[in-house]
Simulated scan of single mutants.
Amino acid sequence: MVSHFDLLAPVYEKLLGPPDPRLWAELLRLPCTGILLDAGGGTGRVSGAMASLVDQVVVSDVSRHMLRRAYVKKGLGAVQSDVATLPFPDGCFQRILVVDALHHFPRQQAALAELTRVLAPGGRLVIEEFDIARLPVKALALFERLLLMGSRFPSVEQILAMIKRCGVRGEIRRDGMAVRVIVDK
Results as ranks from 00 to 15, higher is better:
Glu128Asn: 03
Ala49Glu: 10
Gly40Gln: 09
Glu157Cys: 01
Ile163Val: 15
Lys185Thr: 08
Val54Ile: 08
Arg124Val: 06
Ile96Val: 13
Arg152Ser: 13
Asp90His: 12
Gly150Cys: 02
Pro19Ile: 15
Leu102Arg: 03
Glu157Pro: 02
Gly42Phe: 05
Leu97Tyr: 00
Leu119Glu: 07
Phe5Asn: 10
Ala70Trp: 09
Ser52Cys: 08
Val168Phe: 05
Leu112Phe: 09
Ile159Val: 13
Glu129Trp: 04
Ala39Met: 12
Gly122Val: 09
Arg173Trp: 02
Thr33Gly: 12
Glu129Arg: 14
Gly122Ala: 10
Gly48Ala: 06
Glu129Met: 13
Val2Glu: 15
Leu67Ala: 03
Glu114Phe: 00
Leu140Trp: 08
Leu28Pro: 04
Leu30Glu: 05
Asp6Gly: 05
Glu13Cys: 00
Thr116Lys: 00
Gln94Ile: 05
Ala113Pro: 05
Phe130Lys: 12
Phe88Ile: 14
Phe130Cys: 09
Ile182His: 06
Pro10Val: 03
Asp82Tyr: 00
Pro21Tyr: 06
Ser155Pro: 05
Glu128Trp: 04
Ser47Val: 02
Ile172Val: 15
Leu67Phe: 03
Pro19Ala: 13
Met162Lys: 04
Ala39Val: 15
Gly77Asp: 08
Leu119Tyr: 02
Met177Pro: 12
Leu148Tyr: 14
Gly176Cys: 05
Asp6Trp: 01
Gln109Gly: 14
Gly123Met: 08
Cys92Val: 15
Ile96Pro: 03
Gly42Cys: 04
Arg69Ala: 00
Gln56Pro: 11
Leu28Met: 08
Ala113Thr: 14
Asp20Arg: 14
Asp20Trp: 10
Leu28Cys: 07
Phe130Leu: 15
Pro87Cys: 10
Val59Glu: 04
Gly77Glu: 11
Cys32Phe: 08
Gln108Ala: 13
Arg45Thr: 02
Arg174Met: 01
Phe5Ile: 13
Arg145Leu: 09
Arg165Trp: 08
Gly44Asp: 10
Ser47Gly: 12
Pro21Gly: 02
Ala111Arg: 01
Lys73Tyr: 05
Glu144Trp: 12
Ser3Ala: 06
Gly77Trp: 15
Phe143Cys: 01
Asp175Arg: 15
Val98Ala: 13
Thr43Glu: 14
